[in-house]
């Protein structure tokens, strides 16, 4: 454990990203296209849950933070709370997010801030997540006409949530806007190889898609939280 106290806002932002995406990936259990893919998605979900636990417990009780906060208190980006959709949609979300997360953790691991120890461990996991998403983007994009169409649709649909990833986070002295260029060229090169096109729409909408860091979330998030928190709220104080 690090002795430097993690800044709360930043720890919640990064921890909530990991927690919420982990929960979304967990929803694939029993529903993935093939058994092997189910294991891969569960693996990624477990990695993310581990990151979430470290981050959340650095600023409080992890269970309380996960199960007793209201929707407006969550600081995750809106991208990670988006429903799974079809497999291509999930892969698009994974590609957009894990590419960002890998860049961010690499940056944090290189620094000496309170997140450096976690980031050093997590960046390896995240590199694997990015690779997994990349492999599938290539196969779906350059697969059949139908898989290409669905992959492009997933990217187009989620694109407007990606601007938020690069908004500065309080307590995180990483220059997030500066990561944007690197992220864009990484995404661009994967999409080119996959015969897909980088979406042309704005990366945040008129109503500013992506205010998750401010606690404003999209409609599907409330239902996800209700399911995630149900048991803990029904039996307050129970131990398991």
């Amino acid at each position: 454990m690090t002795t430097t106290r993690a800044p709360r806002t930043a720890a919640l932002a990064l921890g909530d990203d990991a927690l919420v995406l982990s929960h979304r990936l967990g929803e694939w259990a029993g529903h993935a296209p093939v058994l092997e893919e189910e294991v891969a998605l569960a693996n990624i979900a477990l990695d993310l849950l581990g990151q979430a636990r470290t981050l959340l417990s650095s600023v409080g009780d992890e269970d309380e933070l996960a199960y007793l906060r209201q929707e407006r208190e969550f600081r995750n980006v809106q991208l990670v709370e988006q429903p799974n959709g079809d497999f291509a949609h999930t892969i698009a979300r994974q590609l957009l997010f894990s590419t960002y997360q890998e860049l961010l953790y690499a940056e944090l691991a290189g620094g000496s801030g309170p997140f450096a120890p976690l980031a050093a461990k997590a960046v390896k996991e995240t590199a694997y997540h990015r690779d997994h998403a990349e492999q599938w983007t290539l196969r779906l994009g350059d697969g059949t006409e139908e898989s290409h169409r669905r992959m492009q649709l997933g990217l187009d649909t989620l694109w407007r949530f990606t601007g938020e990833l690069f908004q500065p986070i309080e307590g995180l002295d990483t220059d997030l806007p500066a990561l944007h260029g690197e992220w864009r060229s990484a995404i661009g090169s994967v999409l080119r190889r996959a015969t897909l096109t980088v979406p042309e729409g704005p990366q945040s909408g008129a109503w500013r898609a992506g205010a998750g860091r401010q606690g404003l979330h999209t409609e599907p998030f409330g239902r996800m939280l209700a399911e995630m928190q149900h048991l803990h709220r029904s039996h307050p104080g129970a131990k398991w």
């Binding site: 092997e36 690779d131 492999q135």
Partner: peptide, 11 residues
């Protein structure tokens, strides 16, 4: 089961 060698390796 895997669609190709790279995915087989990862699986």
């Amino acid at each position: 089961h895997a669609p190709d060698p790279e995915m087989a390796l990862r699986n």
